[in-house]
Write a protein that binds this DNA or RNA. Structure first.
Lengths: 328, 328
DNA sequence: CACGTTTTGGCAATATTTTGCCAAAACGGT
DNA sequence: ACCGTTTTGGCAAAATATTGCCAAAACGTG
């Protein structure tokens, strides 16, 4: 199934927009992506669950010459043994019980396009050898087939694990590792790029409004504040899901912390009080100044003396802190 | 009675030393004094009680060509009517009951020297006309005398009052005012020149040690601090008297606030607490930082976030305020 | 209204604080 | 011991605070 070029552009721009969102670390990643897209090199994307690995893979695909061809995702975590091979290579009719007709595997489907292997670390060891052999020249047979099939594929793998540790533990083949990782791209967790959260919230609300045909509500600064304080173990996916949940049940034109589900708010049982240090200073100074003024019956020279500051500084601070005095 | 020139120099230098004491406002006054001393102009010294008006008059006298001749002080506040005239002009034998012999008045005694009229504002109005007439040519008769006496006098007057108000209230003659004030010199109160207090204390202690032949004790910073905070309504005279009182009864080699008499300390019943504003800031910030650290279990990044400062700034402040943390 | 004194606020120089950047040090795991 | 990651502290640039100086404004008095 080929995509039309106008659709490609639309999908590509939407994906990039969601991905980047004024976040500087994303900018440097996009730089690498733009360099990589034009070459048929295999990419390994690492990052915590929910950070947008698949989205990034799609962006690379859509930026590449293979954009018009299929993007075929495969989750390596749910298959094993023969079922994995069947999924990748397909089978011929009658190859085994239940093979009532020929079926193409993902390799074939991704021909001249991109194969995305999510959770590559979950690939069973017993399948890794065969898989590796195919990656060498992208020639394979279907199960129960005799004819060799040649395909052209860009491979993008993704994992949230440390593959090197698995290699060390003999859970992952080192040669396979080097084959799938020509270019590594690491996605940082959301808590490492909090500055993008307000824009993400805005964009996800836009998406929900379009998706559900409901007006887009605004968001209170308090809500944003809570989001900024949360660590987001589920990363962008968690934020997007939460926005969706809130959006669906919300019937007001503004979303505040009250609108948040209780299981989310549970993380804030003791709402971490912001203790803005500049505000702490201002409060303490204002209090001390007022007390000294009271003691001296608004004699500024005496007040400055008590506070051990110059009269000029006192005048400066009275103005800065907007403290009114009776003329002495 | 004429003074020897070596005595003049000694007295002069001692007086100037006591007077100036590294105080900038005194320096500018001394400039005027040095200009005035060489000319026979009348000087009016104003300033609060105890500020050293008589001392300054003596300095002018000692710096003038009249230094070898008498300096004759008169307090205008204790005499009135005939007694005032008798004091100034003297009397002949038999001039009145009790005038058993001739007596010279202050004018005669001050001949070729300096006449110092302290508290000139207290001069009774009924005496002002006669007095003014004498100031025009310094010719007068003793009471009960026939012969005119001519003297040469430098007149220095002093007051702690606003003579202009008295003129308006018809308590002081305006023409007399202009006669006695050719050059005005104003002495600031001690509270306006607190920076001189530590040195004054030191010098008065030196004087007392020499006067009473006792070792000179040192002084604690706390004592100086109290002195700096007191307003000294009695000015330098009050400070000097207090030092003398303390010195006499003191038997330690150091003087502290404990050494001060209770009637002086009465002014500090509620000891004005210094509220050093920099310390207020430091205390408030330290407290906030410690609380945030406790909340985050010494996670510096989280702490910085709570405090709304950069991690680098937190590190800076931990060092500045000497706050130790367990490594996270 | 005039005038001497006190207070105020603009300005600039100086001091201090904030904070990004980055290399070195420290840490933790293998 | 090696290595990738995190933390630390030096450095400098930028931001902010402090404060002396002084002319203008305000005040109080005559």
């Amino acid at each position: 199934m080929k995509l039309q070029s106008s659709n490609i552009k639309f999908l590509r721009d939407a994906a990039i927009q969601e991905f980047v969102l004024e976040c500087s670390s994303m900018h440097s990643i996009m730089k690498v992506v733009n360099q990589v897209a034009g070459f048929d090199v295999n990419v390994l994307i690492t990052g915590e669950s929910g950070t947008g690995k698949e989205l990034l893979a799609k962006i690379i695909h859509l930026l590449s010459p293979r954009a018009v061809n299929p993007f075929v995702p495969v989750n390596c975590g749910v298959l094993s043994g023969l079922m994995f091979e069947d999924k990748l290579f397909g089978h011929e009719k009658g190859a085994f019980t239940g093979a009532t007709r020929r079926k193409k595997g993902c390799f074939e489907m991704a021909h001249q396009g991109t194969l995305f292997l999510d959770e590559i670390s979950e690939l069973p060891v017993e399948n890794q050898v065969d898989f590796l052999r195919v990656l060498e020249d992208f020639r394979f047979r279907r199960i129960g087939g005799e004819k060799k099939i040649q395909v052209s594929i860009r491979l993008i793998s993704a994992t949230n694990k440390n593959l090197k540790s698995l290699i060390k533990a003999d859970s992952f083949r080192e040669d396979l590792f080097y084959r799938i990782q020509v270019v590594p791209i690491h996605l940082p967790p959301l808590r490492k790029r909090r500055e993008a959260i307000p824009k993400m919230v805005d964009q996800f609300l836009n998406q929900m409004a379009a998706k559900y045909k409901k007006p887009k509500p605004s968001v209170t600064p308090e809500l944003i504040n809570i989001f900024l304080r949360y660590d987001w173990p589920g990363n962008v996916r968690e934020l997007k899901n939460l926005i969706e949940r809130v959006f669906i049940v919300n019937d007001k034109d503004v979303i505040s912390p009250r609108s948040l589900p209780s299981d989310f708010l549970w993380h804030f049982q003791e709402p971490p009080q912001m203790m803005d240090l500049a505000q702490v200073r201002k409060t303490a100074e204002t209090k001390a100044i007022l007390e000294a003024l009271n003691r001296t019956e608004c004699d500024k020279e005496k007040t400055a003396r008590i506070l051990n500051i110059s009269p000029r500084t006192l005048r400066y601070k009275l103005l800065k802190f907007n403290i009114k005095t009776n003329r002495h």
